[in-house]
Nucleic acid binder design. Structure first.
Lengths: 226, 226
DNA sequence: CATGAAACTTACACTACGTGCAAGTTTGCT
DNA sequence: AGCAAACTTGCACGTAGTGTAAGTTTCATG
């Protein structure tokens, strides 16, 4: 008779259970097919087929084939936004952002799959666009959550800041992908990504000291070790 | 009979002339149809029909229907990137960005159509994604152009900075659209957009002073010492 | 346990997108 | 004039995504 869940974590109802399983099956099938046949051969029908569901059901779960692949990124960014919300409210946003990201980047196993999806998007314009949208929605979410913490006059400054933070995050991923064209799955590469994410936010917080102090960046390129 | 152009700016060849005309016809038809029939009724066939070309030709000129509408934004961002390149090389990037944007925002008539396209994307996810891609490509272009000006060890800092700048630009557009839900075509609104763009970059340059100095952000919350 | 409602899956049909291809047509050069 | 390259067009094809109306499963009743 209790319509409420008996124990929230144990059995969230058979229905929810099945849905989660189907979702996972689709996502798994997509990644498997991608691995085996390459990006070009990835079609909605094949994925649905491999997942054991109808094509229509796939579209009931995901709005597009690319969205299936993109799921890890959206999950990650959702957690990132949530992490920012839960920080102590009396912290200046510029500090809170660094803290939140530090906590998030710590979960390296989540980061690994996200990084994987990120490099995947390099050869797939549709997926790349979808990821840009995901980053943007993350920014909107963060802005929404934090706008209550700042006075109204600072609303625009907050908006700019949040976009800059998210931009910094993307820059970190991008530079990271460029630096590790081949070994992006290695532990060292992962550690580098974590480092870059932190450095990016610190540079934003500190106002880009290296760039600001540039006086004579001569085209003659004063050679330095990389 | 001379194979060289008679006057380089006047007649760039009949072929180029026709192509430009077709391009303009397609873009015009798209905007007209959008105005008249609404976003939902906008289909490739209708646009091509209204432009007096075949559907196939439309796709020879633009990769998608949304790209037709997006043309003004890409043009604007291309000019923005180009403007940054042409600035004196001995200027610190943090200053150069502000200068370049100031020059660009001055051409208010270009800005107007861009702003128009921006609000258009609010109700059209495909177009919105395409615009995000355009901003991103702009960032890549700027990064490419300026990376020669900074020492190699500042390359990553530059990447972060460029992304932050572009993010700031987007934040300005977004906040602007929220502030002018109805009058976004008025001269006052346009002036406000110019102002926001400048303010956004200044805040980035100055390190978000208002956010950093926040001590008691909660309007209804008694401040506690950290 | 029976049973009915709600949630979920599936097949089918339909519109539209974007592309390859093989014609035709226009433009430019000599 | 005439040829080659560029451009347009129609056609066909595979695929994406969506509406709809039927089945099928889950779940809370009596």
């Amino acid at each position: 008779m209790p319509s409420a869940r008996t124990s929230t974590s144990a059995t969230p109802g058979r229905r929810e259970q099945n849905k989660a399983a189907t979702r996972a099956a689709i996502a798994g099938a997509a990644r498997r097919l991608l691995q085996d046949e390459g990006a070009d051969a990835l079609t909605a029908e094949k994925v649905a087929d491999a997942a054991g569901v109808s094509r229509r059901t796939l579209f009931n779960y995901f709005p597009s084939v690319e969205a299936v692949l993109n799921a890890p990124l959206t999950a990650f960014l959702d957690r990132a936004a949530a992490g920012l919300e839960e920080l102590p409210a009396d912290l200046p946003p510029t500090i809170a952002a660094v803290d939140a990201l530090a906590a998030l980047a710590g979960e390296s196993e989540g980061l690994a799959t996200v990084a994987d999806v990120f490099v995947l998007a390099q050869g797939n314009p549709q997926l790349a666009r979808l990821q840009l949208e995901a980053w943007d929605q993350c920014a909107a979410q963060i802005h929404e959550a934090m706008s209550a913490r700042v006075p109204a006059e600072a609303g625009f400054e907050l908006a700019v800041y949040v976009h800059a933070v998210v931009g910094a995050g993307r820059a970190a991923f991008q530079s990271w992908a460029e630096r590790h064209p081949d070994d992006h799955r290695s532990a060292a590469a992962l550690a580098d990504l974590q480092r870059l994410l932190m450095v990016a936010l610190e540079q934003l917080r500190d106002g880009f000291p290296a760039l600001r102090n540039l006086t004579t960046p001569h085209p003659g390129t004063p050679d330095r070790e990389s």
